[in-house]
Design a protein around this nucleic acid. Sequence first.
RNA 1: GGGCCCGUAGCUCAACGGUCAGAGCAGAGCGCUCAUAACGCUUUGGUUGCAGGUUCGAAUCCUGCCGGGCCUACCA
Length: 571
Amino acid sequence: MPRTLITSALPYINGIKHLGNLVGSQLPADVYARYLRARGHEVMFICATDEHGTPAELAAAKAGEPVADYCARMWGEQKALAEGFRLSFDHFGRSSSPENRRLTQHFAGRLADAGLIAEVMERQVYSPADGRFLPDRYIEGTCPNCGYPRARGDQCENCTKQLDPTDLIDPRSAISGSTDLEVRETKHLYLRQSALREELRAWIDSKTDWPILSTSIAHKWLDDGDGLQDRGITRDLDWGVPVMRGTEPWPGMEGKVFYVWFDAPIEYIAATAEWAHANGLPESAWRRWWREDEGAADVRYVEFMGKDNVPFHTLSFPATILGSGERWKLVDYIKSFNYLNYDGGKFSTSQGRGVFMDQALAILPSDYWRWWLLSNVPEGGDANFTWESFQAGVNKDLADVLGNFVSRVTKFAAARFGAAVPDGGDWGPLEVEAAENVANGIVAYQTAMDAIQLRRAAQELRQLWVTGNEYLQAAAPWTAIKTDPGRAATITRFAFDLIALYAALSEPFIPDAAAAMRHALGLDAAPWPDDPADALGRLPAGQPFEVPPVLFAKLDDARRAELEAQFAGAA
RNA sequence: GGGCCCGUAGCUCAACGGUCAGAGCAGAGCGCUCAUAACGCUUUGGUUGCAGGUUCGAAUCCUGCCGGGCCUACCA
């Protein structure tokens, strides 16, 4: 049985994620995971919250909660929303878990043993009023270049000049506004990525099937300026994985934590360990997914992420794994996405602009969102959400094409043949032709899904739904019933076969509707058609069915206008 | 500043350097009446951002320009 490990980029802990976050990693990963499971793969689908770092501390402070409590609460909310969107994670972990703590410290110890960690004394800005070192972007002041008064310590937003915090005139803390800042010496660990440059390059160059979006970003970092730079992997914070060299203390690093970007990807591995522990399984149960010398040699590992995450997954995380000298699984394929915009502008967590996951579910069930987002997933370039586009996509594809097909078939059958799928005679030319179209459509759909071309796959799936309407129109059982009830029965049964097929094929995209279709036909399961040429004719005559409630209600113009108005305020 | 991506029909997007540049939506006409005023068929619509170049042949490759976007390592 083929085995596939799938990870979605970790959503950051500081709040409810918006649809742009959802469509950029978790949702496409879910479709792929569901598809592969249906195709008989053994799948491990992992996600988790990314909990460490300064923004988490600040968000907790703003909420008036201890950071650990805040993260626990937000993890619960994000997990509930993930379930609301039917994200089929095998485990939704936390980067603050004991498993991740141990593994992060383990990797750091291995890297140090391999001579890949440098200890560097740095000078950083400390704010006594805030009681913390300030990351560059949390220091504000007047730009020495253009005089802009709210320039950040890393860059001036106004003139885009790269800055050092000490360049700023009248610097102050962006957190408290305090101008009582001092520069202190502090020691940090650096991952010597530069020493792994050629090894990383060889590895990247072997990935000829990756999207340009993924490889070009990696090459840029490998070759820009002086080449791949060493990277600080520790911070002067309270909230994070304490710096340890494996299980041993790290002299001089007391009270410091690993940088969030060091421990976050390791959480992919740790979350799999969390999964094993939560299910009472032995260590080998998760290690067979991650250690090539412990059973993972046949695993294909696919990562999903937004384009902003690519450098860390093509360079930093692989550097950690390669540098460990242990045979941890490296990613085989990176599927990266562009951004989804909201009505021409950016979704913004800080400004509350756009539609957030909790709001979306309060408006319509998850399948509506899943379908629109996936059939418009930003694969080629950035995509744009508008209520008009959402309404058109949902009404046309889901209500008119698929939902109405199920409705017309089941209502006709119930009126003419009662509560069971009628027995029918042999297929005629129309059925043979429709079955051929369906077989070709399934192959096209599978080809797109295998390549993780999700927009293409959604198109092919929709075309399969259309095929049902085309067939019904040509066969016209409502006419046949008048002169040849047997023929009408054959047509009706064939149409039911199509519904059963749609229940199987549509499941990755719209799992709830797929379940509703199965239930209408009294089926516990709708197996994937392993042989596309033999996909139909498998539903037994006499199978009881029900006319299901409307699968997808339409979003009318009044409601759309209402939603546009409701969200215009936030825009 | 450096790097990358995008620009194709009114809209959203497709098209290994090779038959008349294709789909969906929107528009127009016809058909059907089982169905969520749904479905099906036909049809209108493009100097592929602009200007050059390479080639027997360019939406596709090269150069320049115009427009939009992203990244640039301490936001994650």
